[in-house]
């Protein structure tokens, strides 16, 4: 298993970025091809952002990027230069936020792997744009959960959005 010359496959291009993450300024030099999810998890060690598919399908990696819910597995770290990011770790500085508390009170999680993605989606969207019971389902339809069957999650959102089931 020896070869005459070492060959470098990893693209050498690196990109400097400055980004605000959970309120703190971060300056970093990232490989051009590094995924945002990997930057958050492996470099900043914010491992609450989970990676369930790396294909933009499951929603586990959702973060708040300048106020929008975004899938950090299909973005490059280099693309967020100048942006502000909130991850699940930044949702509440003390204790649980009302949304997090609603998840806890209503059994809105089991394994918790999908949970940060749901929380980030819900904390970023405007409930007014998702009226009624169907609106709740639509708001979370881009996030997959394999444990709960969504029953507890729906109940948590109803509670957090103050929306009775038949309303």
């Amino acid at each position: 298993m020896t070869a005459p010359t070492a060959r470098r496959v990893e693209p050498s291009v690196e990109v400097p970025i400055s980004v605000t993450v959970n309120g703190e300024a971060v300056e970093a030099v990232v490989p051009a091809r590094q995924l945002l999810a990997d930057f958050l998890r492996e470099e900043l060690r914010l491992t609450g952002t989970h990676v369930g598919c790396e294909q933009g399908i499951c929603g586990a990696c959702t973060i708040n990027l300048d106020g929008e819910p975004v899938r950090s597995c299909i973005m490059l770290a280099a693309q967020v230069d100048g942006s502000a990011i909130t991850t699940v770790e930044g949702l509440s500085s003390e204790g649980l936020s009302p949304l997090q508390q609603a998840f806890k009170d209503n059994h809105g999680l089991q394994c918790g792997f999908c949970t940060p993605g749901f929380l980030m989606t819900l904390s970023t969207v405007d409930p007014e744009e998702y009226p009624g019971e169907e609106g709740i389902r639509e708001a979370i339809s881009g996030n997959l959960c394999r444990c709960t069957g969504y029953g507890g999650i729906l109940q948590a959102v109803r509670t957090a959005w103050n929306r009775p089931q038949d309303g």
């Binding site: 990676v51 770790e89 509440s92 649980l96 998840f103």
Partner: peptide, 21 residues
Amino acid sequence: VTRRQDDALLSGRGTYVADLR
């Protein structure tokens, strides 16, 4: 009875294998 791990999981502090480094 409320679940034990929920506070950690809800704030992104549950440590899964892929989080170990």
